[in-house]
Structures are given as structure tokens and as C-alpha cells.
Amino acid sequence: MFNKLTDRHAAITDGVFAIAMTILVLEIAVPTVAVISSDAALDEYFINYLAPSILIYFISFYLVYNFWENTVILFNFNKISYGILTLNMLTMASVCLIPFATGFFFNFYNYINVNLFFSLLILIISLLYILIFILLIRNTFKGYFDKKDEIKNHLRNDGIELPNLKLYVRGVTLTLFYILLAPVCTSLISIVLAFVSPLLSVLSFLLTLILVFIIRMKRMGKDHLENVDLTDDEKEFVDNIRKSIYGE
């Protein structure tokens, strides 16, 4: 029953993200004929509203997509408790606010308070993901880290040595932690820049895309088993851990 509940949570989570990503574009207002009565007015609409709105739309769309991708990765863990599912629902409720915050941004992107509101929302969602990650790591690997010496002694008696296991577990989970940390860093940067330049505050979220790309390029390759000096027994054991994290 709990496995079915988890599957239903995953399904509704995908639905929430799909709707949120679709609604984003609907927040861009189309001007009426009464408002646009000349070429000059249309040019002013393009420069002062449409161009900034499209930029903000793509940034918001990527942020929502990034959060969805994080959710997909986190749902690959096996030990998902009721508490984690509750936190996930709280995260989804916060994600649903992104289209509203984006629409607010479209009209008042040059105001400090609006930049702060958007940045704080992204920061809160990012911190919720990190909290979920910490709980998942604790639940998934608690048995190993609490009784690692007993496990190693038991396996050693069977002729299996696991000298690199703890380092490897740290490595693959650290990669995921860095990915989750990227929007936290950019949100904090955006909050600071909001007092300097609203435009820079918005553009700072592009760092999320850059940081996540760099992290994946730099660390994902290091997490593959062929790049780690492990015995055949270790590779089989650790491969199961990797599957629980990345769903491979």
C-alpha cells in the first residue's frame, strides 16, 4: 500500500509541475487594441514589457524544470517515509506559487520588493529539497553508517573487503547535494543583487543552469564504477547504492 502511495505521489508531483510550467506562459499579457494604437506604442510594449517578460519566462521555466528534475532523482531513493511525502507536498504547494510570482515579476520586475519575493520563493523551495535530501540520505544509509563496522566485519568473514565503500557513497551523494545547492546559491546572489540592480538580480538565476551543467560534467564521470578502484564484490554492492540514487 505504501509503495502505491509513493507512486501516486510521484504521479501528482509530475502533474503539478506540468501545470505550473504551462501556466507560466499564460501569465504574459497580450495587449488590447485600445492600449496599442500606434507603432510607437507597440515598440514601447516590446521593449518595456514583452522582451523582459520572455526573459523572465525562460528563467522561471528552467527553474521549475530544474526542481522537477530534482524530484525525479529524489524519488529514485527506496526509503521514502510519510514525513518525506509530506515535505514533498509542501514543496509542490510552493512550486505552484512560481507562476504567480513570475506574473508579478512580468509587471514589476524593476522593483526591489518583487525581486526579493521571487528570490525568496526560489530559496525556500531549494532549501526544502535539501531537507528532503538529508532525510532520504539518513533513511537510506542509516543502517550502513550506524553499523558500518559490523557490516564490514561480517562481509570480511565471507572474504569480501569494502575499504572504499564509505568514500564512494559520500561521492555519489555529494554530487546530488551540489546539484540541489546550486539554486540556493543563485537565490542568495539574486537577493543581494536586488538592492544593486533588478536586471542583474533576474539574470543571476542563469547561474543555476551554468552551475548544474558544470557539476554534472565535473562530477558525474567520477561517480561511475569504472573510475573507482573497487573489487568485483564492491562493485556489485555499490552498484545497488548507485541505482537507489540515480535510478540507473
Rank of each mutant, 00 (worst) to 15 (best):
I122M: 11
N110G: 10
F141I: 00
T140G: 09
K218A: 08
I19P: 05
F145C: 06
I130V: 15
S244C: 10
T186A: 12
M1K: 13
L193K: 02
I122W: 05
L211Y: 11
N139S: 12
V202D: 00
Y57W: 08
I132S: 00
L174C: 05
R156C: 07
V172Q: 00
L74S: 02
R242F: 09
I124R: 03
D39E: 13
R170Q: 09
I130M: 08
V16S: 02
T208F: 02
I12C: 12
I215S: 02
F213W: 10
L199E: 01
W68Q: 04
K152C: 05
L131G: 08
R219A: 07
I112Y: 15
I151F: 14
S81M: 09
V192P: 04
S37D: 10
D232Y: 15
N153G: 12
L90T: 05
H9K: 12
V16I: 14
A20N: 10
N227I: 04
L165C: 13
D229C: 14
T231R: 08
R138Y: 10
L55E: 02
L127R: 05
F117T: 03
A40S: 13
L123F: 14
V212M: 05
L181M: 13
R8C: 05
A34R: 09
E44N: 13
S197Y: 14
K166I: 11
V196P: 06
I179A: 00
V95I: 12
I23Q: 02
L26V: 11
N240Y: 09
F58G: 05
T186Y: 04
K222S: 06
F46R: 14
N78Y: 15
Y111A: 08
T208H: 02
I112E: 04
I130C: 06
L123T: 06
A41K: 15
V72W: 06
S60C: 07
D233A: 11
S53G: 09
I36M: 06
I125P: 00
S201W: 04
V16W: 03
S126I: 01
H154C: 06
I151W: 11
R219S: 07
D14S: 10
T173I: 07
T186V: 14
D14Q: 10
V30S: 03
I191S: 03
N48F: 13
S81T: 13
V114R: 06
L199Y: 11
M220H: 14
I130S: 05
P52M: 11
I132G: 02
D158M: 13
P163C: 07
A18K: 15
N157V: 09
D239N: 14
T231W: 12
V72C: 07
L230D: 00
A34T: 09
S204L: 00
L123P: 07
F46D: 07
V25K: 02
A20G: 07
F61T: 02
E69R: 15
N157E: 12
K235C: 00
L120Q: 03
D223V: 14
L131T: 11
I130Y: 11
T175H: 12
S38I: 10
I98G: 03
I84C: 01
L207R: 00
P99N: 07
S53F: 12
L203H: 09
D43M: 15
I151K: 08
N76P: 10
N48H: 15
F104G: 02
L97G: 05
I160P: 05
Y82N: 15
F237Q: 03
L167G: 15
